[in-house]
Amino acid sequence: MLPDTERWFVPPDLQLHWHCYGETCLVFNPRSGRTHRLEQWVMDLLEALRQGPVSLSALMEHLGLSQEEREGAREKFNRTIWELDRLGLIFPAGL
């Protein structure tokens, strides 16, 4: 579990390349040189993180999730954030 004090962002100069097919997008990250298959909601999440470093709670609030929804979604978000960090699609504040 990631500490909620950690804040995440997508740098403005990270220009992802993408092709979307329905709800699935293939994304090429020119920094890592890797190609990923992402669901549309993850694309929206990446877009939200372009606004600047935010914590997980603030992010869920920004995406309009209610208090109960947030509790239910926390683990899914947590895993997604962990994975996106590992793939180098998002960065912790300070990097």
Binding site: H19, Y21, T24, L26, G33, R34, T35, R37
Partner: peptide
Amino acid sequence: APDHALLRLGANAFNYE
């Protein structure tokens, strides 16, 4: 599906990366 085809061709290519 085109996304499957893209990943498949890329993964098997000699110099995709």
